[in-house]
Design a protein around this nucleic acid. Sequence first.
DNA 1: TAATTTTATGCACACGTTAACAAAGTGAAT
DNA 2: ATTCACTTTGTTAACGTGTGCATAAAATTA
Lengths: 334, 334
Amino acid sequence: MAATIKDIAKLANVSHTTVSRALNNSPLIKEVTKRKIMQIAQEVNYIPNYNAKSLVLQRSHTIGLFFTSISNGTSSSFFAATIRGVNRVIGIEYNLFVRGIDDYLDYSSIHRKRFDGIILMSQSEADNDFIHHALEQEIPIVVLNRLLPGANLVNIVSNDKEGSYHAGQFLIEQGHTQIAIIEGIKSFKSTEQRRLGFVQAMEEKGLSIPSQYIVGGEYDTESGYQAMQQLLALSTPPTAVFCSNDDMAIGAMNAAFEQGLKVPQDLSIVGFDDINFSMYTNPALTTVKRPIEDISARGAEKILEQIREKETQQELIFVETELIQRKSTAVYSE
Amino acid sequence: MAATIKDIAKLANVSHTTVSRALNNSPLIKEVTKRKIMQIAQEVNYIPNYNAKSLVLQRSHTIGLFFTSISNGTSSSFFAATIRGVNRVIGIEYNLFVRGIDDYLDYSSIHRKRFDGIILMSQSEADNDFIHHALEQEIPIVVLNRLLPGANLVNIVSNDKEGSYHAGQFLIEQGHTQIAIIEGIKSFKSTEQRRLGFVQAMEEKGLSIPSQYIVGGEYDTESGYQAMQQLLALSTPPTAVFCSNDDMAIGAMNAAFEQGLKVPQDLSIVGFDDINFSMYTNPALTTVKRPIEDISARGAEKILEQIREKETQQELIFVETELIQRKSTAVYSE
DNA sequence: TAATTTTATGCACACGTTAACAAAGTGAAT
DNA sequence: ATTCACTTTGTTAACGTGTGCATAAAATTA
């Protein structure tokens, strides 16, 4: 059915090698022949067989975009932004392959022949095995979102620690002293980074954080809701809460409303990420913006670069975060 | 580097043919040999080369998940839910390939050899060319989300018309008579269906819809916000608004708040989709639930079925929608 | 034991492409 | 005209796997 280079060869009265060369624009072929062959290829609607190509060239034309998990702890907006960013950069000559690491029982199917390169949106230390495997297989890899100091790969991360430091600092500047934090999934690196930045801001100003003011969440809305309920049940509830992501901040806001509290008059709330909806919550959410889509796009550029240049580079790229002040925070007043 | 069946053949002192058969569990091979070969394959950590396999078997082990567009008009939650649903069903022996149709200038690279099957989350009539192309290439395809009557494919759609009919009916039952609709992207089929259902509800009760009460949006939050501004600027603004999706409903709510209106006391708002956040808006959004993830999962099951049975079936599956009553709607009171 | 059937294995080619090497053609310099 | 260099094309094998057909080995039957 579908035409092959051999079919074209017959029509053009040349060998299939010549056709192959012509189509790959090899300088070995005379211009006239080249044009004739191109012409015929057009006419028979020739489409190269990528499996054959991949087999002989030992390349897959596939880029793997992996997440720690697709179903757990990856919010929709985060997930979508990542794919959008990568998709923007990767041309259609590449297959874009999307999976969660936790779908794999073992990594034997992850190897060089199947992936020209891997982009990993990494959220958990549990990914280390996967990364190790990829490096072992000598698959070019860029890891996004989670800092891996010293590893021989391209690493692009947002400066979460600094971001949450600014968030904490901001709340203090607003006169708050009773400030709580709702954390993300325990095993996620981002959870740790965001706590660290927050704690640093507190300590610098000599504020202590009672242990009841540090409460765990799961990065989803429901868990933010529950965490806030917990905080509000305390004998001295906080006057401001820093949430480790926007999803939880939205849940937290709801819990506050349910108790009849007003945000920001009675309670200030800060989120993290600046997802699409943050601008449209009521009140609009003050949050730390983290440019996921850009990070992903840069990751994609980097992986293409590595594939082109056929050498793995080591690089650490920090992307800055930015505090977006909206309406969910206010100056503390007794 | 990586072991091939020939390597195993040498180690086992058999031909590569025997190895191939053994690994494919052919009944031609003696149990003992089979076990021996399996054993060795394990030891050398054999991984089949899918390019070679695909080349000879004429199958790609790839399932394409296509969207009308990845960047325009596809909301994050919708996008993520779709991928989650498909991902849940498709085993890791398949490549899951994700792309937007609008990334393609022409469809020459979409052919049988490259895709065992295609799942299309279709939103626009502009997709018809693509569908036609797939059918022509005899690629098994299931189309989700958009009704294609009579086409020779599996078609899974939510009953949007009925859903919005119920939404309209509900608002009328609440005593509203001045009801507006904020529509989605013009070229999207869902836009039409949702309008149709809504209009039907109105007409059945003898309510007319003034043309100013039908206002266009783009399915994103910002456009819902603007559309609502438009409505509120009218000399007689509506007392209830049906929004063609939740994203726009959230934008609309914000516009209302900005004008000092209270939802639902001054204005009732209904959305469509029941995205994650709908439960957490303030007030929580009354909306029509559409089970995207389930639709996608069923689509994935269907495509696998078609691939297994090697015959394209024609089937139309309707998935019911459900009105979820929350707090953004109230009985009309003058 | 010989003939026949059944079972297990191997040979050789195919899938569609690229590439090293060989060969033929072209033109210029001697 | 002969040699040489260069340009263009063809021959052949290779990538890793599956399969029709031939064949060898084993089991069954006569």
